[in-house]
């Protein structure tokens, strides 16, 4: 059996299209996930019982069930309730964003709770209300602490986005599978797919540690 470099290289332009789709999925999902995570993370530290219970249920559900099941639930399950089918892309985004939102919520909660009690008291003692305290004092400090875990979450999401191949959304993995059905060269193609993921995750983790070092200076 010969390793066919030429097939691997010829697959790159099409895999590149998949790569772009993967990046789109990841960036949009993480972006929405950060917003969801901030909202639900704030609810998790709220003294309001209702907000706390809602956010805990959300976090527990999406962290306690497989992402693959969540993708099926959104893409196949929701249309039954809604009465109309969902497009693949928005369905994939919804599932990924809801999932990453749950993980971000825990990261945000941890960040908020790691801020020294003295900061809360100092903010309170000058007469700030809860939202002023959060906005000006607690969240700016919490977000700085959140950057390293946020980078990890971004990498995890990049890899997990390959799961939406099961609903035939043509991201990196799915593109690879499609090429294999034509070429019957699974080793070369899956290896190429894996290497492309590796390049992306390496670049991101370099970028994150660079950002961390920059933030440490001031």
């Amino acid at each position: 059996m010969i390793f066919r470099w030429d097939i691997m290289f010829k697959s790159l332009p099409i895999l590149g299209q998949g790569l772009i789709m993967t990046l789109q999925l990841t960036i949009i999902s993480v972006f929405i996930g950060i917003i969801l995570g901030t909202i639900f993370g704030l609810m998790r530290v709220s003294k309001n019982k209702v907000l706390y219970i809602i956010s805990s249920a959300y976090v527990d559900f999406f962290r306690g069930t497989p992402l693959l099941v969540q993708i099926f639930l959104v893409y196949m399950g929701l249309p039954q309730l809604l009465g109309f089918p969902l497009d693949r892309f928005p369905a994939a985004i919804a599932a990924l964003a809801l999932n990453s939102g749950a993980y971000f919520a825990e990261i945000v909660r941890g960040g908020i709770q790691s801020i020294d009690k003295g900061q809360w008291e100092a903010a309170r003692s000058v007469g700030m209300n809860y939202s002023q305290m959060m906005r000006y004092i607690i969240l700016p400090q919490a977000f700085k602490k959140i950057i390293p875990p946020l980078g990890n979450e971004f990498i995890a999401m990049l890899k997990d986005s390959s799961l939406v191949a099961v609903i035939s959304l043509e991201e990196l993995l799915r593109k690879g599978q499609l090429i294999i059905t034509r070429t019957f060269r699974p080793f070369e193609i899956y290896l190429a797919v894996a290497i492309l993921y590796l390049i992306l995750t390496t670049l991101i983790s370099r970028f994150v540690s660079y950002t961390e070092r920059r933030l440490d200076i001031d």
Partner: peptide, 9 residues
């Protein structure tokens, strides 16, 4: 406060 509690950012 004893620990000053200035806002470090």
């Amino acid at each position: 406060f004893q620990q000053f509690n200035l806002f470090p950012h």
